[in-house]
Simulated scan of single mutants.
Amino acid sequence: MFTKTEPMTSPNAPARPGANSKSVLAADLRIVGEITSSGQVEVMGEVEGNLVAKGLVIGAEGRVSGTVNSDIVEVKGVLNGSVKSQSFALRSTAEVQADVTYSTLTIESGAQIEGKFALNK
C-alpha cells in the first residue's frame, strides 16, 4: 500500500509539488527497482534497489537492500548496501551492513553494524 500525505497550505500559497511530502511503503509491499522522492520516504516493507529521497526512515520491520542517497537517514530495521547522507542515525533495533558516508552519525546502544563509515569531507 502506498500513502502520500501533503501538508496543509493556505489557499494563497504557491503549489510546491513534493515539498515536505511523506510517502509510506507499507509492510505488505515489496519493491524491486528505483525509488526517487523529493520528500521523505518511510519503508515499512521491503525495497531492493536504489533509493533517492530528501529523508528516509526504515521502520523496525522495514528492509532496504541497495544504494541509498538521502540527506537524512534513520534506520530502525535492516539496511544492506551503501549510503550517502548528511545525517545518519541507527536506532537500537537497527541491523546494518553497509558502507556509509555521513556528516553526522548517531548510534544507539543495541544497534548492530558492520561496514565502513566515512566522514563527508
Rank of each mutant, 00 (worst) to 15 (best):
K121C: 05
I107R: 01
N120R: 14
A15W: 11
A13I: 00
V83N: 09
E34G: 13
T9V: 15
R30D: 15
Y102K: 02
V96P: 05
A89N: 06
S82T: 13
V78P: 02
K54L: 12
I113T: 07
T106N: 07
A53S: 12
V100R: 02
G66A: 11
N12H: 12
A98M: 06
A98P: 04
L79I: 10
A19G: 00
P11T: 12
A15N: 08
S37E: 02
K54T: 04
L79Y: 08
M44C: 15
A89C: 02
F117S: 06
V64G: 01
A94M: 03
N50T: 13
L105Q: 06
T3G: 05
Y102N: 04
G62M: 02
A19S: 00
L56R: 06
A60P: 03
T36H: 13
F88T: 05
V68S: 00
F117W: 11
D71E: 15
K4F: 05
K121L: 14
E34W: 04
A27L: 10
G33I: 10
N69K: 15
T93I: 13
S85H: 03
V83I: 10
L119P: 04
N20Y: 10
Y102S: 05
S65V: 11
A98C: 09
R63P: 08
P7S: 08
T36K: 14
A94I: 00
S23Y: 08
V64H: 08
A111M: 09
S103Q: 13
E114W: 01
A53T: 05
G77R: 01
N120I: 03
Y102H: 10
N120V: 08
A89W: 07
L56H: 06
T106C: 01
L25H: 05
A26R: 06
V24D: 02
N80G: 09
F117I: 14
E6Q: 12
S65I: 06
Y102C: 03
I107F: 00
